[in-house]
Design a protein around this nucleic acid. Structure first.
Lengths: 165, 165
DNA sequence: GATAGAAGTGTTATACTGTAACAACCCTGC
DNA sequence: GCAGGGTTGTTACAGTATAACACTTCTATC
């Protein structure tokens, strides 16, 4: 069994400009491959989700779109987010009603999310062991699985240490 | 490692009256042990959650409480549900904004929920293998875990067969 | 290039989910 | 009795999400 694959680590030191550019490039490629349209609005929303690695809420998107000159109503954001989600470009964090960008949209994967409740950082991990374990349980219960929601909440090391001092 | 423990199966044939009574009895015992008060309101809310094995939403609770003669506002339901959750008597299904009763409140466990998106049936499973797997990943990432949300959606066998016919 | 249909976006209105803040009540221990 | 904490009632509002329909833009086909 392959080891857990960390799609996005906590607080990874990186050039975020590059990170964002790469995400947008991969999104273009993924949409091309899937034969769906990455319109200007969807591109804008995706780049807003990718502004940082914390979960972004729909109404945050709306506020940012306003700053960019649009006058969007809620459906505008929700529709774009739903498109991005169905294209595998963002994930929805159910326990936060929020979205994070997916750094690896080309593989259809069911990921696990590790979330710091203090600083909102999110790490995405693809551990096939967990997935298989859950799938096996589902089969035993007679559930034809459609999707997994696996979200682990806690305090990340950095915040944990800050609390001690 | 102990085998996955199925707390509540799909469509388990059972005398639900007995099922409900047992849940209420266990709740009384659990509250006694924890030194917290299972008031009349909380008892009512718990029994409403236990009316069936599908997730119950807060506003459903409110509607039912109205039928029972109260004139409750949202905080009434949310506070009772939060109390029941913190006492381990109900679980919140994040992906549905809803609550299910916990059949085994005495053990502090992080469960996995298997949910049929057609008939809303929920099965609760306590598989320590999954929990350990996730905890190990959390440690590797440096997350001091507080809680797990593991919710598997799909179509249960019964609904799946009904769809074929 | 005209044009019909599909896909995408704008707009209005509203439904659903959840909490802050303060008042009133009632249990318990002294 | 009565002080204090816990519980519930009440009002108001914040945050999340979707239905329904109008309008625009894209695409494929002729």
């Amino acid at each position: 069994m392959p080891p857990p694959r960390v799609i996005a680590p906590f607080h990874g030191e990186h050039n975020h400009r590059k990170c964002l550019d790469q995400a947008m490039q991969r999104a273009e490629a993924a949409c091309l491959q899937q034969g769906v349209r990455l319109t200007e609005l969807r591109r804008q929303v995706l780049s807003l989700v990718w502004e940082n690695h914390s979960p972004t809420r729909a109404y945050d998107i709306l506020a940012r779109l306003k700053e960019k000159g649009r006058r969007p109503a809620p459906p505008t954001a929700y529709r774009a987010l739903e498109f991005l989600r169905s294209a595998g470009l963002v994930h929805r964090i159910e326990s936060l009603n929020a979205y994070v960008g997916c750094a690896d949209p080309m593989v259809g994967h069911s990921s696990q999310f590790f979330i710091c409740d203090r600083c909102d950082a999110v790490a995405e991990v693809h551990d096939t062991g967990v997935t298989e374990h859950l799938t096996r349980n589902a089969e035993r219960l007679g559930l034809h699985t459609a999707r997994h929601t696996v979200e682990i909440h806690g305090i990340c090391t950095r915040c944990y240490h800050n609390d001690q001092t």
